Amino acid sequence: MTVRVAGRSTTDATAGIAADILDHGLAEGLAAASLSIARRFSAGATMWCVAPQWEPHAHHVAVEFVHPVIVGKRALPAVALTAHDVVAQARVSVRPGDIVIAIAAADDPAVLDLMRRTVAWGALSTWIGSGDRPPPGAADHVLWIDDANPLAPATGRFVLMYHLLWELTHVCFEHPGLLSEDVADCEGDVCITCSDEGRQAEVILAADGPLGTALVRTATGEERIDTTLVGPVAPRDLLLVHAGSALARIGDAS
């Protein structure tokens, strides 16, 4: 049965919304994000969903991915994080290889802080929102509606966007050859490419003295680093690390 809404069938209305979204350059973004998410799920990831100002969206995204409403599709591990301090909750939940997806405005301070920490945690980040865009590089994937209306998050366009993300992720699963990423081979005891890379790290424990080392969390796990060049550090500080030493601070502590 087709339900009529404002003179159109629901199918027609949805198609109109989809065309409006995808006409604004989101098609490629959705495809790229879906492939990245499918690859993470294929490798055993859990998805963590946050929406500090619009909590129902976080629950809705988690339900979509965990509930295989299409016969034969996989149930994917997804959890909504709804604590008052969502960064602290994510810190103890997210593991290397996981996925963090946020539905929020570009000026949401908690999500801005969360997104910049996903690099140190080794998580894939996706940010869905509308209006003014986040700064470049704020997340691995930014899926945005260019609509300044503050009520935009309450419209069907947001829901449709993450429905498409969910469905396209399952489409990727139908092509197993896409699910493995090419990884550069490292030869010898030290990989020249990897050893020359600055990495983001989050401080877990500060150094216990002027000659001590700080315990930090990176995308590959915990390690000890020298913080002489940046001075005293505190837990939750973000640092740029290279060759076992902190080279610079990244932003402020949170």
Score class of each variant (00 low, 15 high):
R4A: 06
A6P: 01
R8D: 05
S9Q: 04
S9M: 05
S9G: 12
T10G: 02
T11L: 13
T11C: 09
D12W: 09
T14F: 12
G16T: 09
I17N: 10
I17E: 09
D20V: 01
L22E: 12
D23Q: 15
A27G: 10
G29E: 05
A31Q: 11
A38C: 06
R39A: 07
R39Y: 08
F41Q: 11
A43C: 12
A43G: 14
A45Q: 05
T46D: 13
W48Y: 14
P52N: 13
Q53K: 14
E55Y: 01
P56L: 02
H57Q: 14
A58Y: 01
H59S: 10
V61Q: 00
V66P: 00
H67M: 02
H67T: 14
P68R: 04
V69H: 10
K73V: 01
R74I: 04
P77I: 01
L81E: 02
T82P: 00
H84Y: 11
D85H: 12
Q89D: 15
R91T: 13
V92N: 07
V92D: 07
S93Y: 02
D98E: 07
I99H: 03
V100C: 03
I101C: 00
A105R: 02
A106C: 09
D107L: 00
P109R: 08
A110Q: 15
V111R: 01
L112M: 10
M115C: 15
R116M: 05
R116N: 01
T118D: 09
V119K: 04
A120G: 15
W121V: 01
W121A: 09
G122N: 13
A123G: 09
S125G: 10
T126C: 06
I128D: 00
G129I: 02
R133V: 11
A138P: 08
A138K: 05
D140H: 12
D140M: 03
D140K: 05
H141N: 06
G156C: 08
R157K: 15
R157G: 05
M161R: 05
L164R: 08
W166M: 04
L168C: 07
H170R: 15
F173W: 13
F173H: 13
H175C: 13
P176D: 11
L178C: 07
S180Y: 04
E181D: 06
D182P: 10
V183P: 04
A184E: 12
E187Y: 11
C194K: 00
D196R: 12
D196H: 13
D196V: 01
G198S: 08
Q200R: 12
A201S: 13
I204G: 03
D208Q: 15
P210T: 13
L211A: 14
G212E: 08
T213P: 02
A214H: 00
A214R: 03
A219L: 03
A219I: 02
T220Q: 10
R224T: 08
R224Q: 14
I225M: 12
T227S: 11
T228Y: 03
T228C: 10
P232L: 09
P235F: 02
R236C: 07
L238R: 04
L238Y: 00
L238T: 03
A246C: 10
A246T: 07
L247K: 04
A248H: 05
A248P: 00
A248D: 14
A248Y: 01
I250N: 05
A253L: 12
